[in-house]
Design a protein around this nucleic acid. Structure first.
Length: 593
RNA sequence: GCCCUUGUAGUUCAAUGGAUAGAACGACGGUUUCCUAAACCGUAAAUUUGGGUUCGAUUCCCAGCGAGGGUACCA
């Protein structure tokens, strides 16, 4: 049964005109009014040529007579409140219950292929809170696209080359005394990060000394021997110097081992990883080809540029005077390789909004170079994670480290669970498992419930709540539903495939079914608008309402057997939606907590 | 300078142009012989300012103020 369609048909019949779905604004009726669904008639006045009240009255009368699903209606101002007939409710639930795909769309042979790039770390420092947002959004988006029938390739472009990694390498060579992750017991990415910081410290010191000798900032930077050494190292690397490349490989391998651990902990993964060291040369070729075709131009110093002024943008550097490549060059090369590797229909880049301009330019450049997909690429641009005092700054040591944060969330979850006595009778292993699910659930939900486009604030001191609109609140509800279902099974209650439709439900039950019924639509909208937050907020509303229902009415102690079974099936399906939505968010749910 | 994003209770977040702007945390008060109290109920508390479009604006447009980001050899 689709009320939307029948209302649309009613309007077309009444006024003899086609109307589109957007004009038929059906929304949930507000609590203070009688009814389930409300039609806003204002957009229809042009068609009806009557005032709002008359229009609402006419449509209401028509529906009451011709649409059996509509039991009654009332009109308040321009709003037509429709009440759905009692016999339709259980039928709706039966339909939902029978859906083997949980409301999701399966992939087919001719599904579109979407490639989603996310994470994209530099190899000179460990992941931080900003990366966590990126990873969670990227992974969740991939799951959401899959749930809408797309084929998805999750990809990661690792920025493994460049001056930044040379800085770490140089610092390690100079002051590292040959330490390794094994010898220090440190994760590889953290170890390398430490050397990056060390380089920066020593470089600052050198600049300070030069400054004291009376040099200006620019002169000092130009004369810095440390920076010169780092540049020399990069040059050697690009020239393929054996020793440099070997060191680079060794240090990067430490970093990857560290990243892998963090990714695993976060529960994110990739189908294909690209390395900039393998794509930048292709980028260079593309740029040089563009140059020969006259798409780009060369300056006197030998640097290569794109003139984008006719597109309303500036000139953009593509190759430095010394012939080395920049970020943009690499992205062009990576794009080329990807489309060679996969028949991609849609390319999505999950990258922070600080790079909006970069992707605007990339899109134009790819288009100019003749890549069909240039114009169609999507930059899924998300906001920064800020601290109460502002942006995270590595120099000021205010960066929230990903590994630390994850560890802290899990241990806090464990403490809280213990205090509440939730872990009584659990083995150490089980307790750890639940703590991990809950701790990570709190972290992930906290980040994903926010509109991705917006900057968000994270307060490390207050940490993350476990009550209210949080992951654990929803996980708790899920666990309680499982408990009720277990108890029902113990009592030997079997749940029917299809429920008796003559049951009369209460208001809360009807509302819950209405909410469940929206699930498919929400999943679709989440994909269309690239917003995991939509799903998170939807499931929170559902859970909040279920908790109220759970509090007001009993399930297992209900004496009417048919009603008891209905409530069990209702709970079962709410549990299913929680599990499904959470899996789209990359969050686990526990059977007990 | 120019360009982009953004501004909602004390705080963190909601609200396809629709009815009296929803939640949560925090504050204050209440609920447990009953299926998991990480729950439920109640009270106080908000749209940055000024115009405009509209039957109707937190939402769209213009201007001001505040915040963040980008802006040719960092990624």
């Amino acid at each position: 049964m689709n009320i939307q369609t029948s209302v649309q048909k009613a309007i077309e019949t009444l006024y003899g005109q086609q109307v589109n779905a957007a004009q038929v604004q059906l929304q949930k009726t507000k609590k203070e009014f009688k009814g389930h669904l409300t039609l806003v008639t204002f957009p229809l006045l042009k068609i009806s040529k009557k005032n709002p009240e008359q229009t609402a009255q006419e449509i209401g009368e028509y529906l009451a007579i011709n649409e059996p699903a509509i039991a009654e209606f009332n009109v308040i101002k321009g709003f037509l409140n429709l009440t759905i007939a009692p016999v339709y409710w259980v039928g709706m639930l039966n339909e939902i219950n029978a859906d083997k795909n949980s409301g999701l769309t399966a992939q087919t042979e001719d599904s579109q292929l979407v490639m989603i790039e996310y994470s994209s770390p530099n190899t000179n420092k460990p992941l931080h809170l900003g990366h966590i947002r990126n990873n969670l959004l990227g992974y969740s988006l991939a799951e959401i696209m899959k749930a809408n029938g797309y084929k998805v390739v999750k990809t990661n472009i690792v920025n493994d080359r460049g001056i930044h990694i040379c800085k770490s390498m140089l610092a390690w060579q100079k002051w590292g005394n040959g330490v390794t992750p094994e010898s220090t017991g440190k994760k590889g990415d953290h170890l390398i990060g430490d050397f990056y910081v060390l380089f920066d410290k020593e470089y600052k010191k050198e600049l300070g000394e030069l400054h004291d000798k009376g040099l200006s900032k620019e002169e000092a930077e130009a004369q810095s021997s440390l920076m010169a050494e780092a540049r020399e190292m990069l040059r050697k690397w690009e020239a393929g110097d054996m020793e440099t490349v070997a060191l680079w490989e060794k240090m990067n391998s430490w970093v990857y081992a560290g990243f892998d651990e963090t990714y695993k902990r976060l529960g994110v993964d990739f189908d294909k990883i690209y390395y900039e060291s393998e794509t930048y040369l292709t980028g260079k070729e593309q740029v040089l080809e563009g140059l020969s075709k006259g798409i780009f131009y060369k300056q006197e110093d030998g640097s290569v540029w794109a003139d984008l002024t006719t597109d309303g943008l500036d000139n953009k550097l593509l190759l430095r005077a010394d012939g080395t490549s920049v970020y943009m060059t690499q992205d062009i090369g990576t794009a080329k390789l990807r489309f060679k590797d996969y028949p991609i229909n849609k390319m999505v880049y999950v990258v922070g909004n600080e790079q909006n301009y970069h992707f605007q330019v990339l899109s134009l450049l790819l288009d100019k170079l003749g890549f069909e997909f240039g114009k169609g690429l999507t930059h899924f641009s998300y906001g920064m994670v800020e601290l109460p005092e502002g942006k995270m700054k590595s120099r000021e040591g205010t960066v929230v480290d990903a590994d630390d944060l994850i560890e802290e969330m899990i241990s806090t979850a464990k403490e809280t669970s213990k205090e509440l006595g939730k872990l009584d009778g659990y083995s150490e292993e089980e307790a750890n498992k639940v703590s991990e699910i809950v701790g990570l659930g709190a972290l992930k939900y906290f980040i994903l419930k926010v509109d991705p486009r917006k900057n968000m604030v994270f307060n490390p001191k207050e940490s993350i709540d476990f009550n209210g609109n949080t992951g654990p609140f929803i996980q708790y509800t899920y666990a309680r539903i499982q408990s009720v279902l277990r108890k029902a099974a113990e009592q030997g209650i079997s749940l029917p495939e299809s429920l008796d439709t003559t049951l009369i439900l209460n208001e809360k039950e009807e509302d819950l079914i209405l909410n469940l019924n929206q699930f498919k639509e929400v999943v679709k909208e989440a994909a269309d608008s690239y917003s995991p937050a939509l799903i998170a907020n939807y499931v929170y509303d559902l859970v909040k309402e279920y908790n109220q229902f759970y509090h007001d009415y009993s399930i297992l102690r209900e004496e009417n057997e048919a009603l008891k079974k209905f409530r069990l099936v209702l709970s079962l399906n709410i549990g299913k939606v929680i599990r499904t939505t959470f899996s789209l968010l990359g969050i686990d749910v526990p059977d007990r907590m």
